[in-house]
Design a protein around this nucleic acid. Structure first.
Length: 259
DNA sequence: ATGGCCTGATCTTCAGGA
């Protein structure tokens, strides 16, 4: 079974590439983030034609997550139990579903913006809610994983230049502590291999030739429980998908499971 | 090859991304 996570940065803008990639990669289950579209406008039909069912939590131009599957799609839960919300409203940043033998979450963790911004406190609260929501499945015997855009680089090695991130979000001790606490529920960081160079970056800014210069970050993560981690046969970042015109600024992370 | 931001809406300017 091939399972992947990909922040597509608008499913509307990315649809031709998304459909082509689903076919060429042979992905069975895709956890998708930043759909940036209301569920009513979600492209269910072209996905169905490729054999994918879709579970969607999306409300409009911001955020939006989905699980696409041709391996079954059951017990869908939209939203994060205990989601703290931001500025008085809960945003569509999480969805979970069971796809055949595996249960997955697709998550889009809040960015945080600046360390002294309310969005940063929201980000840390959101991590606490996520930890509470997944703890049961994380300790369970069924293969389970939380896949998505975590908006945190787990270690200094996961950013191209630590000095460039001095005082910024995504690398602070509190954010990394949130990841450590999340792993403490029984989850393992399934680190993919890079297809080129020596770091499995998953995101490169659109600006300043970041991708050609490989100034990237590893912020799209796959956190799997023990049964999931044991079933992993391979994992890689499909950096080919970051190339060319009309690319998302994130590349897919692909995991092959023997389940 | 991979090329000096992109996306969608409040739409010719801006918020948000990270």
């Amino acid at each position: 079974m091939r399972i992947a996570t990909w922040n597509v940065n608008s499913i509307t803008a990315r649809l031709p590439r998304l459909l082509a990639w689903l076919e060429s990669s042979g992905t069975d289950v895709l956890c998708l983030q930043e759909a940036k579209v209301a569920e009513e406008q979600f492209p269910f039909e072209p996905l169905r034609e490729l054999g994918y069912e879709a579970a969607v939590n999306a409300t409009g131009r911001w955020n939006g997550v989905a699980v696409l599957s041709k391996a079954g799609l059951e017990d869908v839960v939209k939203g994060l139990p205990g989601d703290p919300g931001y500025d008085g409203s809960v945003e569509p940043r999480a969805i979970s579903a069971t796809c055949g033998p595996v249960r997955v979450w697709s998550v889009y963790v809040p960015n945080g913006r600046e360390v002294d911004h309310p969005h940063y406190a929201y980000k840390l609260q959101w991590f606490e809610a996520l930890q509470a929501a997944v703890a049961g499945d994380a300790g369970g015997s069924r293969p389970f994983a939380v896949l998505g855009d975590y908006n945190v680089a787990p270690a200094d090695d996961d950013v191209f230049d630590t000095a460039a991130f001095e005082g910024l979000t995504h690398v602070t001790p509190a954010e990394r502590a949130a990841l450590t606490a999340l792993r403490g529920t029984g989850l393992t960081d399934v680190v993919p291999r890079p297809l080129k160079y020596d770091h499995p970056y998953t995101y490169w800014d659109y600006r300043q030739l970041a991708f050609p210069k490989n100034r990237g970050m590893r912020i799209d993560l796959v956190y799997g429980n023990e049964p999931f981690a044991k079933a992993v046969k391979d994992a890689y970042v499909d950096r080919e998908e970051r190339k060319g015109k009309g690319a998302s600024d994130h590349a897919p992370v692909v995991v092959d499971l023997e389940v």
